[in-house]
Structure formats: C-alpha cells, structure tokens
Design a binder for these strands. Structure first.
Length: 715
DNA sequence: AATTCTGTCCTC
DNA sequence: CTAAGAGGACAGAATT
C-alpha cells in the first residue's frame, strides 16, 4: 500500500506520525529521495555543479521510506520530517540504489547520517565485478536500477516511464534524478507518487535476490557500504582551494608555453616555407601553418622530414604514425632526453633540438589547458571548495575521481600547494610506504622481500629499490659484494625501481623497453633478474595464471573475497574446443613429425583456424596479465578503503568529525584536514588507522605509512 | 551543431 | 602465437 503525506490529491493519505510508528519498529527499510533545484535557473553557473545533483544547489522534494508492504511518500516541500529523525538513529538497515546520493543530501539537509546501509548498485558491481559494460564489452551488464529491475524482477523499462530510455547508466541515473528538477511548487501527480514508492520497493526485492547468488561476498560488500559513506563525506565536504595561487602558477607557466610555441613557429617560418601560409592581399606574412596541437598535422610534418616514428595503436592495433613523446624521444640523443626529463629549454639549431622543443611544448600545454584557468570552474559557487565525484568500484577495486579528477594532478608542487586547509586547520598528508611492493611480498610470500620489510636491512635500511638493485645486479654482474645505493648507482637503482613497479603492475618486457630505452631482450633480462632476485615470485605468478585459466576469475583479496570475473572466459573455452575439433582425436599421441604434418594439413584446409589461435592467445595472455596485476592493485585498493573506513569510525566514535576529516584519497595516499591545535594527534590517528586498515589484509608483511603536517597538500 | 573517436598527457 | 597495469581530461578530427 502506498501512503502519501503532503498536499497532493492522492487516494491514500497518512500522517507523519503513522509513518514514524510504522517505520520505527522495522528492521529493514527501503529509502529513496528526489531532489529539485534550490535556486531559480541562472542563479549559479550549473555547467559543473548541477542543481538537482549537487547538495548545495538542491533541496529534497520527496522522501520515500517503507518496506515491501507499505511505502510512505512524503512531500518534503510542505512536510517537516524532523519527527522521523529518530528512525535514522536506530539500527534499522536502509536499502536503496546508489545511496551515496541519499547519504549526501540527507546529511546536508537534515543532518541525517545513514549509517547502516545496503546498496543494491554496489552489491551488483561487486557480485558481477568484471562483467559490466565497458568499451571492450559493450554487451556487458549495467548497474542502473532500471537494469537491475530487468535482470532480477523481469520488469522492463517501458513499464515505468520515469526511467529514461537512454543507453548509458550514468545518464539514466542523472535524468531519473533530474526528473523533478524544475517541479517548483506543482503538486506531485499520482504517477510520480507511485513511481516514487516503487523506487524503494524494487531495491528491497532485489536485495533478497542478490543474497541468493552463489557468490555473495558479505565482507567485501560491507566494506564497500562503509566506504560509500567515506566518499559521501569527502564529496560533501570538498577540499579548500587557493584560487590566487593557482592563477599565479598559471601566470608563471603560460610564458614558457608561449615561448616554446613561438620558437616552433619561427623555426618553421625560417626553414620550411612550404608549411607556412601563402601571403595574400590581407596578410603579407608567411606564418607557420602547422597546428601543433593537432597530431595529424605534426605527423604530416615529421613524415615530410622522413623521421616520423610508428607505434602500434591501442585502438586500431596496427602500426600507425605517431608524434607522442614516448616514440619521438627514441630519436633523440641521450643529452637531449635528459633535458626533456628535466624540462629545460634549448635553442632550436637542428631537427633534434626542434623535436625536443616540440615535446617540451607538448608537455607544458597541459598547464594551460587541463590545469589552466578553465580548471577554476571546478570551484564550487557556494562553498568555494572543490568537490570531486568518485567512482567507487573499478574492476581492480580501486576508485577513480572526476569533475575534477583529483588523482592525476601533476605531482609538481606548484599545483598541489593550491589545495589548502581551512582557517584554523592544518593539512595532513599521509601515504603508505612502498604499498604495492609490500602487497607483492604478502601475496607472493617471497621470503627475501618479507624479511626486508619486516626486519629491515643492515645496509639498505628502508630503501627497497636499492635493496632490489643490489639483489638484481649482484646476480647480473656476478659480483656478490656489489651494493647499490642512491648516490653511487642512481641508474641501477632507477632500473630496479621501475622493474618492481611495472612487474607489480603486470608489465612486460615490451612495455619496459620504452622505460629503459633498451631492446625488448635486454628488458626481459632485467625482468628475469628481478624474478631471480626474489625466487618465490615465479611460482606465485605461475599459480595466479593457472588459477584464472582454470576458474575464469581472480581472487583479488581473500580477506573480503573480492573477485574479478573474466567476461571472456566462456569464449576462451569455446574457441579452444572449436580449434581442437579440426584436429584428429589422437593428435596428441602422434609423434612430433606426424603432428607437424597434420597441423599443416589442418591449416591448409581451414586457414581461419590460425586466426582462432591468434584470438585464443590474445585473450589468454590478457587474462594472465590481469591475474598478476589485479591482486596487487586491488588488494592495495582494499587496504586504502579499509583504512579510510577505520579512520571515519574512529573520528565518529571520538566525536572528532569537525576537527579531523578526510578531503581526498589517491590510491595509496590519504589527505585530511585537522584543527591546528590537534595536528600532531590527528596525524598520529590517520597514520595508525592507515596501518591498521592495511594490516587487516596482510598477515605476513608489516605495512607502514608516513605523513606530514603542512598548510597545503604538497610535501 | 552536437556527439563520438583518437591521440596525447597527467596520476598512482 | 598475440598484446603488453589502472584511470580521466583535453583538443582536434571524424561522423552524424
């Protein structure tokens, strides 16, 4: 039964007291809200922060609460729901779809904090992790409420025209949510009330069906539900931002960019008239006609010079002309490469110095585009802070950030120092020490690595990369006394560092050769040496690969049983079966010569079998790499999530939320604000909660974190 | 004119 | 017997 509380002319009315009496004694309730604009259109620029979605630009116009039998739909424009607040202080489990939205708006508008939650969207993303829609898998699952209604309840979208017909989950979510944006004072229609009620009924039904899934990782889900509130807090609070400093940085970088651009144009104008504009009545000058920001045009010029490199395109998987730094750098001598790394300008005297200048210009371009004045639109019109939006569950279990992306700001402190504390506070920045390497030590159980992290090292102390270097190069150079350190062997140490990062990230000789500027064979030699230096790694990696090929999924962390399911696994087995159907049953029992003969015949008769092999190995090797990479990235991601959850819990239990709170998370790094009189203690709390959260997933290796107190984000 | 694709860059 | 860690933003080009 649907009950309406408000002015609309609806058949079943209830009072707020009746709603309270019904809900207060329940164990589980569905919850949903609808929002509308708080200010009239045009009051604020809504290009980045949108009315109806952004809590500061919205108000709640409808609150839906209830269970499968009875739903209460409340017009919060005319009803003061304060009476209901005790419901949210009980142990009742609140069920809904993508509750971060409800969490943020309820907290902002009513100081209601949803603590005990079950989110049907996050649940499905965890249960079917890997099987979602993506570029590579456009037929994959969607996780909008509409998609879940279809999958679990057999309810199609045309049954409910509040749902948008759009393809994309993101826009469905938004357009559904924006359905009430301009409702103003108009009464709700009967349909709006009934669909509002359905939006709490559906998640309740879906929840009970999700729980019947053979894979239902309770621990992982509860971690995500806890973490959802962390992200809600951060998004609502935002991060304080020094606009003036940003503009100063921009004003410092802009002349460098323009200087480089001028040099490029002058070079063309003086030497390549055929790449300049043709003079006419209106413009007698011959200006450079190459648009440097256009890869096409730059490639055209490099091809004219006969020096354009080719690279296998990620998109087309074919060799394509390219003008990217990675390839162009290979054309340059060592001393110029160094200038590129160090960002140092040099006059254009020949093609090489021209190329260097182009690369440097390209590098400084971003300072004026992505991180230029346009970036300032990310400052919230009301709070004057920067409020990012996080995507909570990627395939690995990591998070991502957008509008703006706070995870890919240049590490260069000129940008990071623009993120500052509020008045009376300090800025805390804390990150895990060698998180990924420690995770690798944990999951592989490599004794040498574990010993290093757990017991320290007499010579290398805590410098893992030097330690790795010593292990690698003493083997490689057959010199047991060789000791790599930062001062005397910076290059060897750098190689060791790159290797351990890339190997942990699932990199191969092919990707490493670019980092080293060596051949693939040499890169492979370094990898082999890395694996030899830590002898337990090989068997661990082999085990990962075997497991994924056997089961079709990867256990990302066994503590919460987070998994990733391969969307191609069935296809892989099918292809394999089909390939072998072309071979005689006794093929494997034949002698080597006979096998060669049969193989040739099969390929001659069925040329497409070769293509099938190719596809088979493509999928298989991708699976193998994923099986190495995801447990490292993903376990580390889970650690950071758990840390933030423990930190939030501690702050609430000790009533510190206003004195100490997170403002950003980047994979292995937590940033927080703390009351200046509490800074030391705050840092100690953050650090200890990070270590505790990380240790939750590791029984073999000791995790560590380090941090500092500052007035801004930079170190 | 609006949307999608591609190449390039930045981060961890 | 291939492809080659995870993401997001921007500009230009292609497509509708």
């Amino acid at each position: 039964m649907i009950y309406f509380i408000g002015n609309s002319d609806y058949k079943n009315k209830a009072t707020l007291q009746e709603c309270f009496d019904y809900c207060f004694k329940k164990e589980i309730l569905g919850i949903d809200i609808e929002t509308t604009r708080l200010y009239k259109q045009g009051t604020y620029d809504e290009s980045e922060y949108k009315a109806g979605l952004d809590p500061y630009l919205s108000k709640i116009c409808m609150l839906q609460i209830g269970d499968i039998e009875n739903q209460y739909v409340i017009d919060t424009r005319v009803i003061d729901i304060s009476l209901l607040i005790p419901i949210f202080k009980t142990n009742i489990l609140f069920v809904g779809h993508y509750l971060k939205f409800e969490y943020i708006h309820l907290k902002h508008n009513y100081n209601i904090v949803l603590e005990n939650i079950y989110d049907t969207m996050l649940s499905d993303q965890v249960i079917f992790n890997g099987l979602g829609k993506s570029k590579d898998n456009p037929e994959g699952l969607r996780f909008s409420l509409e998609a879940l209604c279809d999958r679990y309840l057999g309810i199609k979208k045309q049954d409910n025209n509040l749902f948008n017909q759009d393809e994309d989950d993101e826009t469905i979510d938004k357009s559904t949510r924006l359905g009430f944006i301009n409702i103003g004072d108009r009464d709700f229609t009967e349909k709006e009330i009934e669909y509002g009620a359905k939006d709490i009924e559906y998640p309740l039904l879906i929840k009970s069906l999700q729980e019947q899934n053979s894979y239902f990782p309770k621990e992982c889900l509860s971690l995500e539900f806890e973490f959802e509130k962390v992200l809600g807090d951060i998004e609502l609070k935002g991060i304080n931002f020094d606009k003036e400093k940003w503009i100063n940085t921009y004003n410092e970088k802009l002349p460098i960019y323009e200087f480089r651009l001028k040099k490029l144009n002058t070079f063309i104008e003086q030497n390549y008239k055929n790449f300049c504009t043709i003079p006419d009545l209106f413009n007698t000058e011959q200006n450079c006609d190459i648009l440097w920001s256009s890869p096409d045009q730059v490639i055209q010029f490099l091809r004219f010079l006969n020096i354009c490199p080719k690279e296998k395109s990620k998109q087309t998987k074919k060799m394509e002309w390219t003008c990217g730094a990675k390839s162009v750098l290979k054309l340059l001598p060592r001393n110029l490469k160094e200038l590129y790394e160090k960002d140092i300008d040099i006059d254009i005297t020949d093609i090489n110095t021209f190329l260097l200048n182009y690369l440097l210009w390209n590098k400084s371009k971003q300072c004026c585009t992505t991180f230029g004045e346009e970036w300032l639109k990310n400052i919230h019109p009301i709070t004057k802070r920067v409020h990012t939006s996080y995507t909570q569950i990627l395939n690995t279990g990591r998070i991502s950030s957008r509008n703006p992306n706070l995870q890919n700001l240049p590490a260069d402190e000129s940008y990071r120092q623009c993120f500052i504390q509020s008045i009376g506070n300090k800025f805390l920045n804390c990150d895990f020490s060698s998180q990924e390497s420690r995770v690798l030590a944990e999951v592989s159980g490599d004794k040498k690595m574990l010993d290093f992290f757990n017991n320290g090292h007499p010579i290398h102390k805590t410098d893992f990369h030097s330690f790795t270097g010593t292990n690698m190069f003493s083997l490689l150079r057959n010199d047991p006394d060789l000791i790599i350190n930062k001062k005397d062997f910076p290059e060897e140490r750098q190689i060791a560092k790159t290797i351990s990062f890339k190997v942990a990230y699932g990199g191969s000789a092919y990707t490493l050769k670019d980092d080293f500027g060596t051949s693939e064979e040499e890169a492979q030699l370094f990898i082999d040496n890395f694996l030899n230096a830590f002898p337990d790694l090989k068997s661990y990696f082999k085990n990962c690969e075997e497991n994924v090929l056997k089961t079709g999924y990867i256990i990302i962390d066994k503590t919460t049983n987070r998994r990733w399911f391969s969307p191609d696994f069935d296809k892989l087995e099918k292809i394999n079966k089909e390939i072998w159907s072309y071979f005689p049953d006794n093929y494997r029992k034949l002698s080597k010569e006979q096998r060669e003969k049969v193989k040739k015949e099969v390929y001659l008769k069925n040329p497409h079998v070769k293509d099938m092999w190719s596809l088979y190995f493509t999928i298989q090797s991708s699976l193998k790499r994923t099986s190495l990479n995801y447990p490292i990235q993903g376990l580390a991601g889970s650690q950071t999530k758990k840390s933030a959850v423990l930190f939030r819990k501690y702050c609430i239990e000790n009533n510190l939320q206003d004195k100490l709170f997170l403002v950003n998370l980047i994979h292995d790094e937590c940033s927080a604000e703390v009351n200046e009189n509490f800074a030391e203690k705050g840092l100690q709390i953050l650090k200890s909660k990070m270590i505790e959260g990380a240790q939750f997933f590791c029984e073999k290796v000791k995790m560590d974190a380090e941090g500092n107190i500052n007035t801004n984000w930079s170190k």
